[in-house]
Design a protein around this nucleic acid. Sequence first.
DNA 1: CCCGACCTACTACTTATGTCGGAGGAATCC
DNA 2: GGATTCCTCCGACATAAGTAGTAGGTCGGG
Lengths: 135, 135
Amino acid sequence: MAEREREYEMGDAELEVLRALWELRSATVRQVLDYLRSHGRHVAYTTVQTFLTRLEQKGVAKSDRRDLAYVYRATVSRERVSRSRLRSLLTQLYDGAAGPLVLQLVRSETLTPDELGELQKLIDRLDSRTKRTNP
Amino acid sequence: MAEREREYEMGDAELEVLRALWELRSATVRQVLDYLRSHGRHVAYTTVQTFLTRLEQKGVAKSDRRDLAYVYRATVSRERVSRSRLRSLLTQLYDGAAGPLVLQLVRSETLTPDELGELQKLIDRLDSRTKRTNP
DNA sequence: CCCGACCTACTACTTATGTCGGAGGAATCC
DNA sequence: GGATTCCTCCGACATAAGTAGTAGGTCGGG
């Protein structure tokens, strides 16, 4: 296998199911199915079941028998998965340098004023830290 | 297939080969192989050949017979692929909102002072534009 | 007590990806 | 001029991922 041991390895469709779990907090196969349907994604009941099983095998979800159906919930946060994927993208396309990516994002995507404010604060904090270490 | 028509669809190993093409500008199978080897990636000659062929089929590289060996070069830029992948990540994990991603990146990755400066300039520009539109 | 609605457990099939090996041709080296 | 070295062409095989059908249990109503 390509030496890469990317932490949360999963396909796009699997990720969609995981997202459903993040949204719903906890859900049965049917609930996930309904969620996906209501978001325009049409797959069979058993397909969702397969995904949930696979997600559990991969350790990113766990199930728990409730009444007659299993209830699933994610065991990893969206942030964790996101960080992992982002890091992978960074490594694969920018040799790990975040700078170019951030600039590209801010340039080509639209940030809300609030987000811009947040970002500004963050930068100020980093700036002052730099100055202090490097007067 | 999962309805998604992601522009530059390719596996990690294929991407590594494409990266080699970006670095080398143009290269034969062997040159790519050597490049990969020198970067700690060990695969068979024919494996690289397969990847190059597939990349060509996908339209992201083209070949051209030179002497006895084919010479390959990428037909898409790193930026294009990067943008596409990034957009996909954004959609998959943040419903397309760039803000959270940017904040996460700036928070968890290290930017150089130069990059921070760039970023600051960018924000200032965006800020003034916002103020002008929204006094 | 049988029906329909659900649920789980399997099995299965397809395409994409990662990885090669072997066949057969051309240039190269004593 | 036969062995060596490269190259290309093709076929192959394993695993992952996307998608789903079938078999067989359970439960609530008529």
